[in-house]
């Protein structure tokens, strides 16, 4: 129905600020998981900033570096890294799954000739890339 918004008295129920916890009376788990997904970026950022700080300390000499390495052994840091790792993995999982979903809709992203590449290949490719990257970095870190 099209109506004259000047003369019709309508009522819009406002969305709450905490809609990811409660949206007009209901909790939606997917909204909550969305917020967790976005929150992963905060942990990514914190880790990167910490990494940059470590690099900076290296320029300050051996002492500074060793002291920081020592403090990383403390409980709070271990807990932080554990949580950060969980969030980082959740990011990998959701992000890589997203390319697969995009491939599965309509024309997808990758076409071979006139056909859309079946999404399973994109899934294998993106999760496979994760596995390869993870192994290569671990290998280089341990052996270089």
């Amino acid at each position: 129905m099209m109506l004259d918004s000047e003369t019709t008295k309508t009522y819009t129920r406002p969305i709450s600020k905490a809609w990811w916890l409660r949206d007009r009376g209901y909790f939606n788990r997917r909204y909550f998981m969305f917020l967790l997904r976005e929150l992963t970026s905060v942990f990514v950022a914190l880790y990167v900033v910490l990494f940059i700080y470590e690099l900076f300390l290296l320029t300050k000499g051996q002492e500074a570096h060793a002291a920081f390495q020592e403090s990383l052994r403390s409980g709070p840091f271990i807990v932080f890294f554990l949580i950060a790792l969980l969030f980082a993995l959740y990011h990998s999982w959701t992000w890589l799954g997203l390319t697969t979903k995009m491939q599965a809709a309509g024309r997808g992203l990758v076409k071979i000739g006139t056909k859309t590449l079946p999404p399973i290949f994109v899934a294998l490719g993106s999760y496979g890339a994760w596995l390869v990257a993870t192994c290569v970095i671990a290998y280089l870190f341990l052996t270089l």
């Binding site: 099209m2 109506l3 918004s5 019709t8 309508t10 009522y11 819009t12 129920r13 969305i15």
Partner: peptide, 21 residues
Amino acid sequence: VEPLVNFPIVRDLVTDMTDFM
């Protein structure tokens, strides 16, 4: 049963779809 959220309610369960149109 409630009217679709995010749209102005005209009456009971009827909403105004002008914006979408």
